Computed example of a mutant assay.
Amino acid sequence: MAETTSRVLQLLGLLQSRRVWSGEELAERLGVTTRSVRRDIERLRELGYPVLASKGHGGGYQLGAGAALPPLLLDPDEAVAMAVCLRLAAGGSVAGVGESALRALSKLDQVMPSRLRSQVAAVHDATVTLTSSDSPVEPDVLMTLARACRDRERVSASYVDRAGTASQRRLEPYQLVTTGRRWYLLAYDRDRGDWRSLRLDRMRDVAAQGSTFASRDAPDAAAYVRRSISASPYRYVARVRFFAPEHVVAQHFSPASVSIEPDGPGACIVTAGADDPEMMLFYFVKVGCEFEVIEPAEVAEAAVSVAERLRRAANRP
């Protein structure tokens, strides 16, 4: 049975390496009869691999596209190349690619032998990537946290907050969230007894503790991180009603910087944070729609002050 399984895997590798193989070519490569090749082809089909067969000149066996993606068989060089590409993609800024690349890399890393993993690390260490991101994240940090989220494994890390204060964290990681520019972790902080949103580029010495935790009733990761980004770090959090539909106003803001909720058929409410009320108003004015400040009073007062200043500027000869 072990010999048959090995031969079937070898057959799969041959089918993935070239578009079409004749039965005689496969039999010669595998050292078996064409009848054995036909039986092994049927075994691959039972496992979900769509192996097509065609007769006549130029015909033979061919690996086709199926309704589902079956497992891939990679040789060592292919595995290293794929892992390197996935590492680069996971740290990139292409919308929707980073998170998928990270999941794929996590699966590949789980089964990759240590000698190949060291080759991937060597290539990565020797490579410098020019990127527009101002908050690069180490791939090993991404990998450690992705595995911890998947396996419900506790981690420890040192963290530097927005004010520059360093602290040690004991965390139960739940989910990674990317905004395209930055990565965030939704985790339960065991020392603070509450949920936290942590920027990965501010985390150091991330280490899995080898012990698992029971799942908690977690908040929605994307919504929690969005609220944390748009409100909690700032001195002032404003709620502003725009007299325009949500999809019109949303075009002028980054999804990671504000939260927008509909307020009837022709209006919406934007929640955003800033340390300077006047600076916040300039972003609201740039939308080009009528709006009113709901709260706080400091932002409303800043609107009056800025309006008076602009009115005086317009009346000067």
Rank of each mutant, 00 (worst) to 15 (best):
V225T: 15
A218C: 02
D201N: 14
E46N: 09
F291P: 00
A148R: 10
T179S: 03
T271F: 04
L200R: 11
F243H: 14
Y224E: 09
V248T: 08
A221V: 09
M280N: 06
E290D: 14
R312N: 10
L200Q: 11
R154E: 14
N315Y: 04
E278T: 14
R29M: 12
R103D: 13
P233I: 13
M203H: 02
F242L: 00
L72T: 02
T165I: 13
S22N: 06
R117G: 06
T33D: 14
V128I: 10
G31F: 01
R312A: 14
G48Q: 02
V128H: 02
A83P: 00
V123Q: 07
A53S: 14
F213Q: 02
A148M: 09
L88W: 04
V258D: 05
E298T: 04
E3S: 10
P136A: 03
L281I: 06
N315T: 10
R43V: 15
L72S: 11
I41L: 15
R239W: 04
T144N: 04
G31Q: 01
S17I: 09
V37M: 12
D217V: 05
V123G: 00
A222D: 12
C149H: 06
E138M: 09
L73F: 02
F284Y: 14
M112E: 07
V51H: 08
A218H: 03
G180H: 08
P277Y: 00
G164N: 08
T271A: 07
R182E: 00
T212V: 07
S54W: 06
E172G: 05
Y234C: 01
Q62M: 12
M82T: 15
A300E: 15
R162L: 11
L44K: 07
W183V: 10
A214Q: 13
S114R: 11
Y61I: 03
L11T: 10
V120P: 00
M143Y: 01
D220P: 05
T129Y: 09
A90H: 04
C149R: 07
R154D: 01
A256H: 13
A89K: 07
L15S: 14
A95E: 13
A314S: 10
A146G: 06
L198K: 05
V306R: 05
R38H: 08
F253S: 01
S167D: 06
D217Y: 03
A207H: 04
T178V: 03
D201S: 13
V270L: 15
V111P: 01
A65D: 11
E25K: 07
